[in-house]
Design a protein around this nucleic acid. Structure first.
Length: 410
RNA sequence: GGAUGGGUUCCCGAGCGGCCAAAGGGAGCGGACUGUAAAUCCGUUGUCGCAGACUACGAUGGUUCGAAUCCAUCCCCAUCCA
């Protein structure tokens, strides 16, 4: 059989578990498959953890299959207990609707929604009007509590406690799959490996209730070499929204990944051909930095576009490789009011530029010898910036080796 | 509903009337070393103009010169029993 998208996903390291590998692979060669991945809109931006799923969809779409993005404005109402130790905070319908609209805009960069090549659906459409008794009688009967409790995702919660409220999440996700199968002929659900039980049960439900084939497939989670989820920083997740994570920070995150994780990131997060990915990943010693540069630029370009990616790269080169172009460095513009209020005292400016989280934090940083103006170390917490410094191009305020912010007058 | 054990700072987890802004570990941040990597070592980690003050140990009241520590009520969680 010729190579198809299943092999591509396998080669790039996406595949984790699949309910019927042989059957699915054959199906993907024979016909256009409608598949879906669900996203619960619990924040107003996607983050990098979602990106692997988006990449999976993009690969599938490029191979001619049809993605359905399911926005879980219904399920997010409940919260998925998988892998979490606490119950998710409940959100209002209005917030969920707003978040969903943000997701949609970000997805359009990677997926082609034109001419019905992909579509977005909301599970609230069928979950909100659901009647409890009907649902339990039609769907609930297919779920064995005994079996559910043996699932890995619930086992973890057995220690911490689990409510029926959350346990019903699996039923709803399974029902989503059934509903999409009925409405749109969707036969495959994909998702992160933490979703395995939910996805598998959905496929089982279709097979039992509809007597039709349905497939479950999970992809690797983006983890680093310690097995921890990637994309978390002191500032929180790596968001795709440039207002929540600046393009420069985004670029820098990838520029700084561990040596061991570069190849995996290139493979999962970019479309770079695999032989090139392998070459880059195998670069010895210091040369691995070439791979990191490629990774950082490529994924930044995919998410934020060519222009922004070039700016971020230029800024990074200026700061770390002795470049002189300061125009693209993250900048904090101080208003006249801020200048007056802060008196341009260094601790205050550190807070204003978000390099420090509080004045106490700023004070500690200075006392620890980690703050610089240009190349000069700030020796005392009592120092201030000269008003002259921040006119024109401004000055570079630096925290540690990697925290840069250009300070200038607004 | 009953019995028992719990709710501590970003996380885990000690403390059980003053010496507690709270041990220890994890994680983060800064320094040294490097390759804008890892490992290692050192420092640091509530807020506020430092000292000092203020806010913190599930919630609310109370006892005390003084409470995270004692009492009462309430909320939440775990285990066993119904």
């Amino acid at each position: 059989m010729e190579r198809n998208v299943y092999d591509v996903l396998e080669e790039r390291g996406f595949l984790k578990q699949c309910s019927h590998p042989e059957e699915l692979r054959e199906l993907l060669s024979k016909e256009k498959v409608t598949f879906y991945i669900g996203f619960d809109p619990t924040a107003d931006s996607l983050h990098i953890g979602h990106y692997v799923a988006l990449m999976t969809m993009a690969h599938m779409q490029r191979a001619g299959h049809k993605p359905i993005v399911l926005l879980g404005n219904g399920t997010a109402f409940i919260g998925d207990p998988s892998g979490k130790t606490d119950m998710r905070t409940m959100m209002s319908k209005e917030t969920l609707a707003y978040n969903a609209s943000c997701f949609k805009a970000q997805m359009a960069r990677l997926l082609d929604f034109s001419d019905g090549k992909a579509q977005i659906v909301y599970n609230g459409d069928w979950l909100y009007p659901l009647n409890f008794l009907d649902f339990m009688r039609d769907i609930g009967v297919y779920f064995s509590v005994n079996r559910m409790l043996t699932a890995e995702c619930y086992k973890q919660r057995m220690e911490k406690g689990l409510t029926f409220f959350e346990m019903s999440y699996m039923l709803m996700q399974s029902y989503d799959f059934l509903e999409l199968n009925r409405r749109y002929g969707c036969v495959l659900q994909m998702g992160g490996d933490d979703q395995w039980s939910n996805i598998l049960n959905g496929a089982d439900l279709i097979r039992r209730k509809e007597q039709k084939p349905a497939f479950a497939l999970t992809t690797s989670l983006l983890t680093n070499s310690d097995g921890k989820k990637m994309g978390k920083t002191e500032k929180g997740a790596i968001w795709l929204d440039p207002n929540k994570c600046s393009v420069f920070d985004f670029y820098q995150y990838w520029r700084n990944v561990d040596d061991q994780d570069v190849e995996k990131c290139l493979s999962l997060l970019t479309f770079i051909p695999m032989d090139e990915v392998k070459r880059l990943g195998a670069l010895p010693g210091e040369q691995i930095n070439e791979a990191k540069r490629t990774l950082a630029y490529t994924i930044t370009e995919q998410v934020h576009g060519e222009e922004e990616a070039k700016k971020a790269q230029a800024a990074a080169e200026s700061l770390f490789a002795g470049g002189t172009d300061l125009s693209n460095i993250p900048t904090c513009e101080l208003s006249a009011e801020e200048i007056a209020q802060s008196g341009l005292r260094i601790p205050d400016v550190l807070v204003l530029s978000k390099l420090a989280s509080s004045k106490s934090d700023a004070r500690r940083l200075i006392e620890g010898g980690g703050v610089f103006i240009g190349d000069r170390k700030v020796e005392s917490v009592n120092e201030s910036l000269d008003p002259e410094d921040i006119s024109g191009e401004g000055v570079i305020l630096r925290k540690g080796k990697k925290g840069y912010c250009r300070i200038r007058r607004a």
